[in-house]
Design a protein around this nucleic acid. Structure first.
Lengths: 151, 151
DNA sequence: TATTGTTATACTCTATAACTATA
DNA sequence: TATAGTTATAGAGTATAACAATA
């Protein structure tokens, strides 16, 4: 089996066999997807990652427009998942953060993800699990380095 | 480092370090996401996988409603990505299939995915790439077996 | 009478543009 | 006057219910 130019063969194999992993990783529990739209969930995850964020910061990190973020936050506030308050230095901005309910919801999402991954991984050999975890960590590191280099 | 009960630790690591792979795998080229909504793209992928499909079959495989599929197909037909025709046996059904333009579009999506994966993988060692591909293949096989067993 | 697909309606998401409050 | 956020409006996605054509 000869190496193909530029690792095209490896990328092609990753594209094919990666679908199952992506499906397991990306799943959302039914009761959550019934209560929240995918967009609302994306906002929630972005708020969690940022800790605190203004509408324009969220718009940037989500590649969305401030007006869209405002609407999404309106509904997330109404549902009790986030809270908004005026900035203390600059009173134009609205600072958004998770409520306890929002954090609990994201916790359930994370647990669901781990459960879905575990379901497939428990049927793998120890060596295969090891290879997967090692490979994913290396991919993650290479992605981060690439981003940094390209800056 | 002791093994944790039920492989929870392994699943937790996969959840964390898998994010970069999922991001690379799931990316859509800008010019495509400007022309097509994510929902339309999902329909297109489902049609490709099925070869030919009726509206209700698509609704099933997409976990959507026939009425939603009809709307999405309306726009995909208008854009020239799919074509519809009456079933020959059962004249109630509408059979959907890709046009050449639709197939070309999905081809570009696939090439974009391979390129994104290759970008990170070229900075990995040969051993790490090997581990990743091996692990993903094993995960995919375990998922398929699990599905079959649970049937 | 049952089934397939579509159309009617209502609510959400997203984008553009106009507007309000603050700087 | 510039900026942050919101509100107005319009097109698209998705759900329920009513409807047409076919079986």
């Amino acid at each position: 089996m000869a190496a193909t130019p530029h690792g095209e063969e490896a990328a092609s194999r990753a594209a094919r066999s990666g679908a199952a992993f992506v499906a397991a990783w990306s799943g959302v529990p039914d009761d959550l997807s019934e209560r929240l739209s995918a967009s609302q969930l994306r906002v929630l995850v972005a708020v969690e990652r940022a800790g605190e964020a203004t509408a324009s910061q969220l718009a940037l990190s989500l590649d969305a427009l401030p007006s869209s973020v405002t609407r999404l936050c309106d509904r997330l506030v109404a549902a009790g998942h986030i809270e908004r308050s005026r900035g203390e230095e600059d009173r134009r901005v609205q600072v958004v953060r998770l409520t306890a309910a929002g954090a609990a919801l994201l916790d359930r999402l994370e647990r669901h993800r781990r459960t879905a991954l575990q379901r497939a991984m428990r049927d793998m050999s120890e060596a295969d699990r090891e290879a997967l975890l090692h490979g994913l960590a290396a991919f993650s590191a290479a992605s981060a380095d690439g981003d940094a280099t390209r800056r």
